[in-house]
Structures are given as C-alpha cells and as structure tokens.
Simulated assay, not measured.
Amino acid sequence: METLVNSLKGKHLLTLADFSGEEITQIIDAAIELKEKQHNGVVHHYLKGKTLAMIFEKSSTRTRVSFEVGMSQLGGHALFLSRNDIQLGRGETVPDTAKVLSRYVDGIMIRAHEHSAVEELAANSSIPVINALTDDFHPCQALADLMTLYEAKGTFNKKKLAYIGDGNNVAHSLMIACAKLGVDCSIATPEGYEPKAEVIDLCKKVVSETGASLIVTNDPKEAVHEADAVYTDVWTSMGWEEEQEVRLKAFQPYQVNAELMSFANKDAIFLHCLPAKRGQEVTAEVIDGPQSYVFDEAENRLHVQKALMVALMA
C-alpha cells in the first residue's frame, strides 16, 4: 500500500489516460488486498481523520453508497453535497468552490455532466479530485470492471473484452483501461453511436506501445468473437431520455442475449455497470445466468475506490 501511495501522491483521477498501466495495476492489486481485509474483518483505517466531499450533479446508487461506505471502512468521513446543497448551484464559480473546499476537506469526489467542470475543479484545487462520472468518462467504473476481469481470469495476459452498445463514457474509460493494461478490446456500436474519435486515436497510440488490439466495429458478432468478457450498458443514458424511441430501434440488434454470447469463449463472463434494463440491452437469461459477474463488479466499485482514495488521500 505504501508503494501505491508514494506512486500516486499529489495526483487527481480525471481520466485513466493520466495513469500508467503500472499505476492502474497497483490500484487493482491494492483493491484486492482491501477486499480481503474487509471480508476477513481486518480493520484498515488508512484514512482516519480524513474527510471526502462528494459533489453530485447526477443521482446515483452505487457511486454514493460505495464512496460513503468506503470512507467509513477506511476510518474517514464523507459529506454528500448535491448541487442544491451548495452555492455552486446558485452561481458560485467552480474555482471558488474548489478553493473553499480545499481549506475544509482532504479530497473531492464529483459526479458531473461536463468533463470540463471536473478539469476546472482540479485545476483550482489543492487536494485530490476524483472523477466519479462525467458525460465523457467513468474511470472508477472501468477500474472495477478490470478488477472483476482479473479476479475471474487470474490474468490480463491474452484476454479480450468486448463492449456492445453505446459508445459512451463507460466505453471510453473501458477502452483506455484495456489499452493501458494490454487487454484486447473490441467495441461494437450502431452507426453514429461510435466512441469519440479523439478517444479512439488516444487508445490506438497506447495499444501500439502495449501490444494490445483495438477494434471499433458496427458488427456485434465480430466484436464478441472469442471474447473473455462481454460488456454492455443501457441504451439510453441519463440525459438522453428524449432520444429513447430512436435509440431503442437503433440498438435492438445489439442486445446481449444467449445467441450473441455463444460467439464468445465458452467461459466468457458477462459484465454490466448497472442499473440494467432486462429485455433491452441484455436478456434476463444472461444477466441472471451463471456467466454473469455483475454483482461482483458492483461490489468491486467499493474496493477500487477505497484503494484509489488511499492512494490519493493518505
């Protein structure tokens, strides 16, 4: 744990692009250690006396509970701050908010719409800032996803993750994490819903160094072929509800069902960041079946975020 703290001291987590593959591996290793301690009832108050401010522009179940519980298990304290609870929602600037919170707490977690707001917060903060989701990135989720893949397969070497659905914030962070860790990644989306070009270009550069492969296609069967993990997300993310009917039609051929899973390896696992809509992006047969690791994955949000907070705030 000391090595991890020394490695990441003074950093923010805005996107995983700012972290090396070695640093991401250290976070996952620490998360596995903390998970074992928690399951065995070993007290691990690495953040005793520390306080985390949690700013929420978007509602959440897993993010709020996992960060609050995580801080408690680490011996610290978490403050929930909705946009309506603080002056940021009444016109105070992001820089002023960052400077004030820096005098009160030891770290800031923010779940926001615009990624630029998180960048501005970090630029004006003297304490660590953790991106708990923006419209462009979801790095904490990707850390939990790759931790789950590692637990299920015992290695990242020669493993392939296939993501089927919207080229959204979850897809962006998954692509970056896989590229950094040398995990082959294939993304299948309907035409017009691909990941952002700048994220694809970034990942292509990284895989040229790590030796992993990256495929972006409109063919879900091509993407899933010989995959070790098949991943999907809701077709209509928060903020895009007005497009729901159009998206339902466009994404129907991208449902993860037993037929699509048959193109993956026989021992492939199924992943989903949750919440899920059974009968849309995934069938109940798959998400509630023996290949599903979605609740292990949800639990792992707690452990990777604890590792991350220890690394940045201890």
Rank of each mutant, 00 (worst) to 15 (best):
A112Y: 13
C140K: 01
L101S: 06
A117M: 13
L101Q: 05
H138Y: 10
N124F: 14
T97C: 08
A144T: 07
R111A: 10
R111H: 08
A123S: 15
A123M: 03
I110A: 15
S125D: 02
D136T: 06
S126E: 15
R111T: 08
A142L: 07
M147K: 13
D145L: 13
G107H: 08
A122T: 01
A144L: 07
R103K: 14
V105Q: 00
P128G: 10
A117W: 03
H115D: 02
L149H: 05
E119L: 14
M147P: 04
F137L: 04
H113T: 09
I130H: 05
L121T: 01
S126F: 04
P95A: 09
A144E: 11
S102W: 10
V100I: 15
I108R: 04
A132L: 11
D106K: 06
E114Y: 10
L146V: 14
E120M: 15
M109V: 12
V100C: 04
S102E: 07
A132D: 09
A132S: 13
Q141D: 11
H113Y: 15
R103V: 06
Y104M: 15
D106L: 09
I108G: 03
V118L: 15
S116D: 13
T148F: 11
T134H: 05
A123E: 11
A123R: 14
T97H: 08
V129P: 05
R111L: 09
L121W: 11
A142P: 04
S126P: 00
D145A: 12
Q141R: 10
V129C: 13
N124R: 05
Y104W: 14
K99W: 04
I130E: 09
N131T: 06
T97E: 06
V129F: 11
E119Y: 01
D106G: 07
E120I: 07
V100F: 04
A122E: 12
I110V: 15
E119R: 13
A123L: 11
D106R: 04
A112W: 12
L101M: 14
L133P: 01
Y150I: 00
M109F: 01
